[in-house]
């Protein structure tokens, strides 16, 4: 069966160990979590987890069912099959040297990257977008010499209920 990336949105009761339960359930059954984002919703006691995992449709259905069994899980939604928007954020630090600072500044202007902090020795840029946009920017950032990078996991939102 064809393996592909699935984005799963999970609503949970915001209990101390709910994340451990979810990670444990999937890890213990041999499923991989590729990325994970967690935060509260408009209700403090309910959190949303957006998780990406790769697998066949059957595997992902099994993952959904296993998650549904958890007492603290309210709902599980595979966003891959419905229209949704996706965003990810990347923070990148580039070190500036006398040799590269001109090239870096030019690239920043050209690509309209958002600079968050800029100093004499480094600059930190923020990139937000969907996977294609992030990949596109990273391909251009890499030759400039990335010294550190942090990516959030993918977040997603359904267009309609």
């Amino acid at each position: 069966m064809e393996k592909k990336a699935h984005v799963i949105s999970i609503l949970v009761h915001n209990k101390p160990d709910v994340l451990a339960r979810i990670a444990g359930t999937l890890g213990g059954k041999g499923y991989n979590i590729d990325s994970l984002c967690v935060n509260t919703t408009t209700q403090n006691d309910i959190s949303k987890i957006v998780m990406t995992t790769a697998g066949s449709q059957a595997t992902v259905t099994r993952i959904e069912n296993q998650l549904q069994r958890l007492v603290d899980v309210i709902s599980v939604d595979d966003l891959t099959n419905v229209e949704s928007i996706y965003r990810e954020m990347v923070l990148v630090r580039l070190n500036l040297t006398t040799q590269n600072s001109e090239t870096v500044k030019k690239a920043i202007d050209m690509n309209k990257w958002k600079v968050i902090v800029s100093g004499d020795k480094y600059v930190i840029v923020e990139i937000t977008g969907d996977k294609t946009q992030i990949d596109f920017s990273l391909a251009r950032l890499e030759p400039l010499g990335i010294t550190d990078i942090t990516r959030t996991g993918l977040i997603a939102l359904k267009l309609e209920d």
Binding site: P16, D17, A20, R21, G24, T25, G28, L70, V71, D72
Partner: peptide, 14 residues
Amino acid sequence: ITGITRPCTKHNFL
């Protein structure tokens, strides 16, 4: 013990 029994209980509480 809640950590140890997480995978073998239906649910647990501290």
